[in-house]
């Protein structure tokens, strides 16, 4: 005898959306090989480290590391306010060069008289003096004996 019985289907547990997203992330990391690479790396970390160190200990690699370090240290010696002045000066200089380039068609050769006048232009010489001084210092450094920068820095 199959008398009717009512049955309430129990409500399903609320889906754990965070867990689903995590599962999906894991699945994608797996599908795209990221997990495999990470696992491979971890499992072979000693060997991999040795290979990485061996590669890094080549002359070219060492040069890259030293040069990048020198640039970083040089930037460390420049106070930000000086770099700001310098960057503004470079920008201004570039703009004037652009303007001068645009006006080049209209410029004429200065001639002997014009050159004589330039030699007596106080503003021009006060602008050129720092550049000339800079060039002088730059040239002296070029003539110094090559030494390890760290040694030089600590002299």
């Amino acid at each position: 005898m199959a008398t009717g019985i009512h049955y309430e289907v129990p409500a399903p547990a609320a889906p754990d959306e965070a867990r689903q997203e995590l599962d999906r992330l894991l699945n994608n990391l797996h599908k795209h090989g990221v997990l495999r690479i990470a696992n491979d790396f971890l499992e072979a970390s000693t060997d991999v480290s040795r290979i990485v160190l061996a590669g890094a200990n080549q002359p070219q690699s060492r040069n890259v590391m030293q040069n990048v370090s020198l640039l970083v240290m040089a930037l460390g010696k420049v106070p930000p306010e000086r770099l700001a002045v310098l960057s503004r000066a470079v920008t201004e200089g570039l703009e004037r060069m652009e303007t001068a380039a645009d006006e080049r068609q209209r410029s004429r050769a200065p001639g002997l008289t014009g050159t004589y006048k330039l030699l007596h232009d106080e503003a021009l010489w006060s602008g050129l003096s720092p550049l000339l001084e800079g060039l002088r210092g730059f040239a002296q450094c070029l003539h110094e004996k090559e030494e390890k920068p760290a040694a030089k820095r600590h002299d």
């Binding site: 199959a2 008398t3 009717g4 019985i5 049955y7 289907v9």
Partner: peptide, 25 residues
């Protein structure tokens, strides 16, 4: 439904618990 009451054995295959399911074994 009276007939279903008389069955010895009723199997119902469905996606919901229907009125027919009520009399299933």
């Amino acid at each position: 439904q009276e007939a279903f009451d008389k069955l010895d054995f009723l199997v119902v295959q469905d996606i919901f618990f229907t009125r027919t399911c009520e009399q299933a074994d």
